[in-house]
Design a protein around this nucleic acid. Structure first.
Lengths: 345, 345
DNA sequence: GTCCGTGTTGAATACGGATGCAAATCCCGT
DNA sequence: ACGGGATTTGCATCCGTATTCAACACGGAC
């Protein structure tokens, strides 16, 4: 059923039908109501494809992602798509895989004329491939930095987060700290590492060892934690670049190295994924403000101006979640509630 | 840049440009090569929207999902979208949330003219809302059953899976079995429960207790496991309707009830999510054949005939993964490799 | 009654590519 | 050189909606 057919059936023009479905268009309330009623009755719905062709707007936002196995992302994606649906947008998923030709995978972004692109692929994508793909359309990089100041980014305050962890270790009296990185090549990986090391120095603590997992995964953390110990360093606290690494690392430290957490070694992560709260882990971590991230991303992808030079870098504040992986049971500021949270500007 | 502009620039007709990009169309290799070369040079790409309008095909598959928090789904979605991309389709995500009006949320499926719909929302969606949404287009229900024999489904062999678990418990000498359901209202929930109970009876074992979590989540499993014990029953083996329930349940049994797994109680789940292999859990489970599910779903959503009465119900075979949550360390058929796997037809 | 402004309506056309059909070209045999 | 079939090309039209523009209706002011 097309708008023309419906129009013919009820004796109005096709324009009228189109206007009935277009908010703010020039049509009398009576006419609109009559048309909408008939449409409901006869099962007419505007064809979105034709509408896209006319208006050059698709109401589709491309979501580029690469790392669905890090449990932080599914939750983020879910809330992003819901946030977009809430404002009448749909989400077209682009799953970028490392092996194949990235540009070819992103070609569809351009062909499908998506209105905007939200990139949550922290890894993999080169800046070059990225800027080619999003050329000429709105874009938001989530949890990823860019050297290009013309690109809008939404990101937790990494420096504040890792500093909060360092401060927390310091407050606990730990002085010999280890660091486990994920991917050392990404900007965000470097930023976290750099900020952490800087803060350690300010506090007069030593970085007694570090390792790189190479990927953000449980297995990577498991491996890297052992490497860290094999170096000979015996840290009394280890900060993992994110939670999934920390969980793998914690299991390695306990099961393989036979250490006690947090007595022998305190452990902290970053992100606050669901599993970090599980009783076996109770991981102290720096929580990403997922709601804020989603809200700002949706807002920016829909309403940001498209001109040059007005890109924004939004830094959102997270929150330190203290759990037993650093303070143990009963030992420390934890009383009834096993979890304490500190907002960090 | 449009096909007409490109055509004008290189002195051919718009039709020629269109044909150059349409495989199998009537055009000489020389002409095609010339056009494609110029297109590459001048940066022309066909506008997919216009193409959709002409051909009435979008190459977009809608993916309806509701339960991104069960870790089984992110992996499935990821592989589904990749599988679809591999055959030139894109994935439009529809995240159905329980609260709001379902039909309204699914309206976009119809307006966007997706070529097909893959439903991986085991929960929530009523049959009625579903059949309205997918009316007239190809659809595949993944991991979800339907009473309507005209709907194509792709599903692991639930009966074989739960029977394998029951048999495994039996072989271990366990006789007092508990069952923790997820959502009891879903068809798949009922099927698993029924098949499990039936098999127990055949083996002469007793179902000493059962509980329903109400949702497929860690917290639900944690709660339901305690309810099961509070009933007064003391099972020596518990089967959880899926892995995430089992993980929550296992932690509850250990931490809250102080039981030893598997000595006091053996535990098994269903799905084989990544975390089930983690050393703290080592959960015996029935693994879903994710690759097969993806492969069959992609195949069916692309090539299945659209007529009536030729819907298929594909039942794929899974695999029992035996880990320490049932056989313990060293005690049982597990030797060097902590994991043993048994294919189940 | 006339005039003008405001608010509605319909006819016509644009959006960019696909395709049926007719015209043009090619290739080959004679 | 010519005819005939096969292949290639271009023209015209269509897909379904949005939007411009002109036409029209209505109401109030003079």
């Amino acid at each position: 059923m097309t708008s023309r057919q419906l129009a013919a059936l009820i004796g109005v023009s096709q324009s009228a039908v189109s206007r009935a479905f277009t908010p703010g268009s020039s049509i009398s309330p009576a006419m609109r109501e009559r048309i909408l009623a008939s449409a409901r009755e006869l099962g007419y719905q505007p064809n979105a494809i034709a509408s896209m062709l006319s208006t050059n707007r698709t109401n589709i936002i491309g979501i580029v992602l690469s790392d669905m196995r890090n449990p932080f992302y599914p939750g983020l994606i879910e809330r992003l798509t819901q946030g977009l649906q809430r404002v009448g947008r749909q989400s077209l998923l682009f799953n970028v895989t490392p092996g194949a030709n990235i540009e070819e995978q992103l070609q569809a972004i351009r062909q499908y004329n998506v209105d905007g692109v939200i990139v949550v692929a922290a890894t993999i994508l080169s800046e070059k491939a990225l800027s080619w793909a999003i050329e000429g359309r709105r874009s938001v990089l989530v949890n990823r930095l860019s050297l290009d100041r013309n690109i809008t980014t939404v990101c937790v305050d990494n420096a504040a987060g890792v500093s909060a962890i360092a401060d927390h270790f310091h407050a606990l009296g730990r002085r010999k700290v280890g660091y486990v990185a994920g991917m050392t090549k990404t900007l965000i990986g470097r930023e976290r590492r750099m900020a952490f090391v800087t803060r350690l120095a300010e506090l007069g603590m030593t970085l007694v060892g570090s390792a790189a997992a190479g990927e953000y995964s449980y297995a990577g953390g498991h491996r890297a934690a052992q490497e860290l110990l094999a170096e000979g360093s015996r840290p009394d606290a280890i900060f993992f670049a994110n939670d999934i690494l920390a969980l793998g690392g914690m299991d390695a430290l306990r099961d393989v190295a036979g250490l006690c957490v947090p007595d022998d070694v305190a452990i902290a992560g970053f992100d606050d994924i669901a599993m970090s709260a599980w009783p076996h882990y109770e991981l102290t971590t720096f929580a990403q403000p997922v709601s804020d991230i989603v809200e700002r991303s949706v807002e920016l992808i829909c309403n940001a101006p498209l001109g040059d030079g007005d890109a924004r870098q939004e830094i959102l504040s997270g929150r330190l979640i203290v759990r037993r992986s650093t303070v143990g049971a009963g030992g420390g500021p934890v009383d009834g509630d096993p979890r304490q949270s500190v907002k960090v500007a």
